[in-house]
Each structure stands twice: as structure tokens, then as C-alpha cells.
Amino acid sequence: MNVSTMTENHNKGARTRAFDQAPGNAWKAWIPALLVLFAIPLLLAGNPFYIHLAVLICLNIIFVNGLALINRTGQLSFCHAAFMGMGAYAAVICTVRFQTPFLISVSAGVAVSMLAAYLLGAVILRLQGVYFVLVTFCFGELFRLVMLEGGDITGGANGIANIPPARLFGFTFDSKLSFYVLAAACAFLSIVFLIALFKTPKGNSLDAVGDNPDLAEASGISIQGSQTFAFVLGSAFAGFSGALLAHYLGFVSPESFNQHISVAAIIMLVIGGRGSVLGPILGALIMTPLPELFRSAIETQNIMYGITLILVLKFLPMGLVGIGAKLRGKKGQP
């Protein structure tokens, strides 16, 4: 890409700085912009359906942020929905069976996702490219089968219903609006976290690994270490969004975490844009409400998705975020 042509004569520090500045370095300007964006649904409080969509957008932002983090180290996970499911199931089982408070349940969900990602990552992250994709694909299927066969623990195909709503510090998030505030806060924090992470040397090393593993290794960055870090953290994001989703919908079932959900996350990421913090936000923002346009004609929707996906890959490999860069006079494009 644009970076590699610039990097050859530079050291690692200069390279990563250049990379982060390319899609736009006005972080300070668009944090307030984000806050305004998250505040818009509050004005629509009269229509719970829009609030419902806004909640889903926020949860998808967290979910896709996790996938983006993994992808920035050069790996594409095809079992992202499985980690979402793990977080959801673990949190729900804690809430329903052990009556733990919401905060503990969610923490347990995230912890289970992280542990599973660590164990899985330890053995599969030595695989690259399509091999990694295939092994994660298989793992996603395996997870779904295990949930289906889980008997009383997971409720089998019926899943678990009647999950009590989220409660935090004595406040119950049982209305759509209140849950939106919670989800928006979480989504916002996940974004700020990513912005902060990619300003640290650790974050830069993740990009370095994704961009040119050989070069990164030559400059002393551990590929496996960076990828494990991103895989565990990204899966934690997925688990977190799953735990929230389960407490919002009050329901979990294995079909809510199948391959289609993993593919949907990849579509959001690719269309929004890989390699920047803004991409996943754009992807979730656009792709979550889009199906509503086609609610009674689903085939058309999927055909449109397919065509968009191919067109974006062909003409905007950096995703919609790349439009800005293109307009700004093709800076750095070969």
C-alpha cells in the first residue's frame, strides 16, 4: 500500500507515525463530533424503534472494533461471532444460574472470551493468511455445535430466555433509552480505548506486524506476541458486546452467533475501512440500519451487499474511510 513505498528508507517510528496520520489526524476534532453523533438518538427518544437500532449500532461498533483490532495485525478472524457468543453465554449463565450482579456477569463473560482466545491463539496464531481463516471458520462451527449440544447448561437450540435486564449501581436499564445510554457509553469508551492504544508504542507495533511482518520482526517486534495480544483483546471486545446484547434482548440462542454473524462483521469492517479507528464506526453505522430498507425483500438486500462488497474491495480497498484520503489529493498513493 501507500506506506510500504515510504517505509523502505525510514525507521520504524517514522513509518508508523506516517501511517496513523494518513487517514486524518484530527482526533481532537472528532471526539466531540462522536459525542454529538451519540447524542442524536437521544433526540429521537419518542421513537423506540430508532433507539433500538441505535443500541444495535453501538453494540456492533464494539463488536467490529474487536475484529478491526485483530485485523490490524494482519489476521482475519472467522469466528468472531463465537467469541461474542462465549461472552453472551458465560454472562447469561452467571446471571441466570448464580444470580450474580450485572457487572460481575459481564466481567465473567469477557474473561471467558479472553481465556478462550488466549488458549486458541496460542496454538493457531502461528498460522498465516487463509490457514488462519480456515481454522477460525472451523472453530466457529465447533462452538455452535457445542452450544447446540449443551443440554441444560446452554438450553440447547432453544437457548436461554427471560434474562433479567442490566442493573448497575441500583439502576435498572430496562427501557430502550436507558440501555442506549449504557451501550453508547460503552461504544464510546471502546473507541477512545482504541485511539489511545494506537497512540502508544504497543499499538504501533501491532500495525507494524500487520503491515510487514518480516520488517517488524527484523526490528525486534514479536509477531506471535503482538498477534496474541490483539486476538485476546479483540475477542474480549466481542465477548463484551455479546454480554451486553444478551442482557438487552433478554435472550440467547446458538443461531444468534453463527457464521453469518462473523461474515456480517467482516462486511462491516471491509466496507467501513480496515486500518483506521474510524472504519469500524462507519461500517457499523451504515450497515446496521441498512437491512431495514429491505425488511420484506431480503434477497435484494443480500445481492446489494454482495455487489457493494466487491466494488468496495476493487475501488476502495481502504473502505469508505478511504474516500476522504482519495479526495485529499491522493496523498501518498503510488
Binding site: L76, V263, V270, E299, N302, G306, L309, I310, L313
Partner: peptide
């Protein structure tokens, strides 16, 4: 028409085939 730009590009090519699959399957459904 579609795959030419993705020859040898493992990840992008694969994602493009996901788009292709959606088009073919839903076209048949229609």
C-alpha cells in the same frame, strides 16, 4: 470481470468470493 483484481491476494480475494456467494445464492432465491 470480478476476480481479476484479486489474483494472488489471499484475503481480499476471499472476501470478494463471499460477496460473489451472496449474489449467486440470493439471485437463485429470487
Amino acid at each position: 470481470v470480478v476476480m481479476k483484481g484479486f489474483r494472488g491476494e489471499e484475503l481480499n480475494g476471499m472476501i470478494a468470493t463471499i460477496g460473489l456467494a451472496m449474489i449467486l445464492q440470493n439471485g437463485a432465491l429470487m
